[in-house]
Design a binder for these strands. Structure first.
Lengths: 177, 177
DNA sequence: CAAATATGTCAGCCATGTTGACTTATTTTA
DNA sequence: TAAAATAAGTCAACATGGCTGACATATTTG
């Protein structure tokens, strides 16, 4: 059942031989999957986008709030590394968040060059409001996807990401596995 | 097994009661899922991004190539609708693609106001080169995700998207389901 | 013939990425 | 201890790809 060709979301057409014409014919269900990735991601971030707008923030601010929330006390360079952006890009949004007291900086005691980043209460609240609709979306989808487990979805998604990223994620996630 | 709390990608911590503190404690595995969505999407588009760069194109060009490739003969307004962007945004990239002969315009016979969009041979080739690494990524991930099926992943992703988007996608996909 | 529709274009704004050059603290190391 | 390396921050300029508003043109429809 799981290996059959049916169920690729219900196209009218029969699947093409699906054989090893690999370099000639693309497997249609995977082309569809590419598209699903695009649509799902776009809609998945649409709710937080709306909330952010009302605060004069953008997606970049969201990412910072998210990662600082997930790894309280992380340094600026750790944040840069996980986001894979330049410090000039980061600085614009980080400055906003610090000025408006969503994020607090604490100088590290041992190494006073390092600034530890933390969410303020205000920051936690916003982060919470941003992630709530996304969590709900997952829960709804999970409820509707009988047979599918979150665990399997996670495994699949994890395999899509690059090794270096995987390290960052694991880090974030606690490490083992 | 599929309902247990374990396997949320291997955090060090025990899962918090996971009870109905719903409005107080976020389900950790879903917070991780949010993050996976971010990382997976970013890495998933990274290969095409590299190819695009060598052509002087961006992600926006990729999307146009993709949808025109998937729905040959679509009109400009259909494309605008599916991309959910303004015609001014589209025009910049579409102009590039037409000038450089990746996309061909044909005036509709019945209604000469409508321009039908098509990929040229050159367009097909580029599209193919862009999607190939993504297809490969899916195939690799699928191979590594024993137990998980593409079908279930698709169902889950489909449920994440908005109703209106779902209509667009189905359209694209052939309609039924 | 008037109104609606499909497309295209000009001009300017905004968010968020980039590079390169430099400063200031602070810690490490030779 | 003096020099080098590291962490953070800043200024300036540039690119991409969203956006709005205002219009122009061709074509079809009522």
């Amino acid at each position: 059942m799981s290996q059959e060709n049916k169920g690729t979301l219900g196209k009218k057409h029969e699947n093409p031989p699906s054989s090893d014409t690999s370099s000639l014919e693309l497997p249609l269900e995977l082309v569809e999957a590419v598209e699903l990735m695009f649509f799902a991601y776009r809609d998945f971030v649409s709710d937080p986008d709306t909330i952010l707008e009302s605060h004069g923030f953008g997606r970049a601010h969201h990412r910072v709030l998210h990662f600082v929330g997930r790894r309280p006390g992380m340094s600026v360079s750790e944040l840069l590394h996980i986001l894979s952006i330049t410090k000039q890009s980061l600085s614009r949004v980080l400055k906003d968040l610090i000025e408006e007291k969503y994020i607090i900086q604490e100088t590290d005691e041992k190494d006073r060059r390092i600034k530890r980043l933390l969410l303020s209460a205000k920051g936690h609240e916003l982060h919470r409001n941003l992630i709530d609709p996304q969590i709900r979306r997952f829960q709804d989808s999970l409820a509707k996807s009988e047979g599918g487990t979150l665990e399997k979805w996670q495994k699949f998604m994890l395999h899509l990401i690059n090794m270096e990223t995987k390290i960052d994620f694991m880090d974030d996630t606690g490490g083992d596995k």
